[in-house]
């Protein structure tokens, strides 16, 4: 034993506490300005979605035609729209459905993308061939056309506010990029030596996939999902604007933009403000995705 103990290497002076890769990424993120800008925007929007009353005491449905297109003032910093509703209040309250649709659609897309990508990448061969062709087929559907058809089909009930239909439409049509990214990340992780080492020990496919491959393949996937979240929020707006999205008593940015569109010449504010919030939110998520990707990218270290 003695000669072996003499060979013990001194611990590497990395300075104290154990750090996981995520910990390392966090250290990196902390120093990035763009991350903080994006994070602050995202937090504000999430707060708005969760507790809109923190931001305004006005009721978005308290509309008086008497105030039609009135200018800013009297507790309504953005003025009133053609129905006499408070534009600021509508915009704040619109965050909830926009974010809800975005998050839920992204979750659906994420689950489909994860499963398809993981299975295709891990098993390869005919599983990959079949799943990849399936991805190609979904990708070949023109997005707007497919969405219009699907959303209309799903929201045939005149009572519904269309939230469920839009979530499913965006989710079902939007997972292809996530699946492709997942697949290629799984393929590169699958060929790593540590997977071979686990395979040698007799690990089951489930263990290999969940314990060894997934944790090492998931970061590009998360980046794609972050960006997709922004895209889905914009997608909701698009569908609502086209008249196949939210409707009825729903309040969302897309809906507000759709309603304000025809009156844009006489009253710009009801169109501009929801658009600004929408653009800022989408941008914030995309920037966040970028920052996270950079932080996780080992090549930049």
């Amino acid at each position: 034993m003695s000669d072996r103990n003499a060979t013990v290497e001194a611990p590497k002076p990395t300075g104290g506490k154990p750090r996981s890769l995520a910990g390392d990424a966090w250290l990196d993120l902390r120093t990035r300005k763009i991350f903080w800008i994006a994070a602050v925007l995202v937090v504000v929007v999430l707060l708005m979605a969760a507790w809109p009353s923190l931001f305004t005491s006005a009721d978005p449905k308290d509309c008086l035609l008497a105030r039609k297109n009135a200018g800013a003032g009297g507790g309504a910093p953005f003025g009133y729209d053609f129905q006499g509703c408070d534009v600021y209040a509508k915009t704040v309250y619109g965050a909830r459905d926009s974010i809800l649709v975005g998050v839920a659609a992204t979750l659906i897309a994420g689950v489909i993308g994860l499963v398809v990508g993981l299975l295709a990448g891990y098993f390869g061969r005919w599983v990959d061939a079949v799943l990849s062709r399936f991805v190609d087929i979904v990708l070949a559907i023109p997005f707007i056309l497919g969405a219009i058809v699907l959303a209309r089909r799903l929201s045939s009930d005149p009572e519904s506010n269309g939230v469920f239909a839009v979530i499913v439409t965006l989710g079902v049509l939007g997972w292809t990029t996530a699946a492709r990214v997942m697949r290629s990340a799984v393929i590169s992780a699958k060929n790593q030596d540590y997977v071979a080492a686990a395979r040698m020990l007799g690990a089951s496919p489930a263990r290999l996939m969940l314990r060894h491959i997934l944790p090492n393949a998931v970061s590009p996937f998360i980046v794609v999902l972050t960006v997709l979240l922004g895209v889905n929020i914009a997608g909701e707006a698009t569908l609502s604007y086209l008249g196949v999205g939210l409707k009825g008593d729903a309040v969302s940015w897309g809906l507000a933009i759709a309603e304000a569109g025809p009156f844009a010449r006489t009253a710009a504010a009801p169109l501009v403000w929801p658009s600004v919030f929408l653009a800022a939110t989408v941008l914030a998520f995309i920037m966040l995705g970028d920052a996270i990707r950079d932080a996780f990218d080992p090549k930049l270290r």
Binding site: D3, A6, T7, V8, E9, K12, P13
Partner: peptide
């Protein structure tokens, strides 16, 4: 016979 070992590691260049 057994190799003569240099104990420890090359230093970190930051330290």
């Amino acid at each position: 016979q057994a190799l003569n070992v240099i104990r420890g590691l090359p230093p970190a260049l930051t330290d």
